[in-house]
Simulated scan of single mutants.
Amino acid sequence: MFTGIIEATGTVKDITHSGTNATFWISSAISQELKVDQSISHNGVCLTVEETANGMHRVTAIAETLSKTNLGQWKPGTIVNLERCMQMNGRLDGHIVQGHVDATATCTNIVSKEGSWEYSFRFPETFSHLVIEKGSISLNGTSLTIFNVGKDDFTVAIIPYTYEHTSIHTLQQGDLVNIEFDIVGKYIARNMAGIKSK
């Protein structure tokens, strides 16, 4: 479980493929502190550390993950957001993030507000019931508040600290981002719909 408060950014150094899997070597300031079997959020995707060496760590994404996230578009040099799992004795500064990406969204507009930035995104309309004005969302693993919510789009405001300390500053119009909707909202939506488990 994560909070959506990004701890560091990392750089993809190498990518190899085996069958339908993709393996990534990522260099970051926290890589040497990581341990094998540790769960780390990479752009909002929970991945298991398989190996660490020379200030880098290795993770593998399977076909299911590659098909539902933007990891398949990573290349050497890509900057990714990193967060270690939360400690239960700490403050929850963001919101509850599972690291289970629901969909991808496309960046449709970027506006500089002379001290902050507004990024707009379009997402699959089938998820519109999970997006509310001033609600929380995880965007590439970053906990953000959404506004200007439409049936298939929303906007987020980015403060200077977030702009400088996450990968948001690398986004361009047309880029895909990983989104995870608020888990509390998902449970409420399922309950209201009267859906029962098998």
Rank of each mutant, 00 (worst) to 15 (best):
I6Y: 07
C107L: 15
I179S: 02
D14E: 15
K196D: 10
G77M: 06
G94A: 08
S39K: 01
T106K: 14
Q172N: 15
S197C: 08
V49C: 10
T52V: 14
K75I: 11
V97N: 01
T104L: 07
A103I: 06
M86Q: 04
G185D: 07
N43K: 01
T9H: 02
S167G: 11
G94E: 08
Q73K: 11
I79S: 11
S136T: 03
G174N: 04
N70S: 14
N81T: 00
I15S: 09
M1A: 09
G194E: 10
H42E: 03
A103H: 07
R84M: 12
M56L: 10
E118F: 01
Q87L: 13
E164H: 10
I132D: 03
H17F: 08
D14N: 13
I15Y: 08
S116P: 01
T155P: 02
D37Q: 12
V59E: 03
R190H: 07
I146G: 02
D152V: 02
P76Y: 07
G4F: 00
S116W: 11
D37A: 09
I40V: 15
T60E: 04
M1G: 10
M1C: 05
I96F: 15
S138L: 03
T48Q: 11
F147D: 12
V101M: 04
K13F: 01
I79C: 13
K113E: 14
T155D: 05
K196N: 13
N89L: 07
S138W: 01
I26G: 03
S138E: 04
S136V: 03
R91P: 02
E114L: 11
V80Q: 02
G141R: 00
T108E: 08
D102F: 02
D175Y: 02
H165N: 14
K35W: 01
T16A: 10
L144G: 05
E51D: 13
V45I: 14
R58T: 11
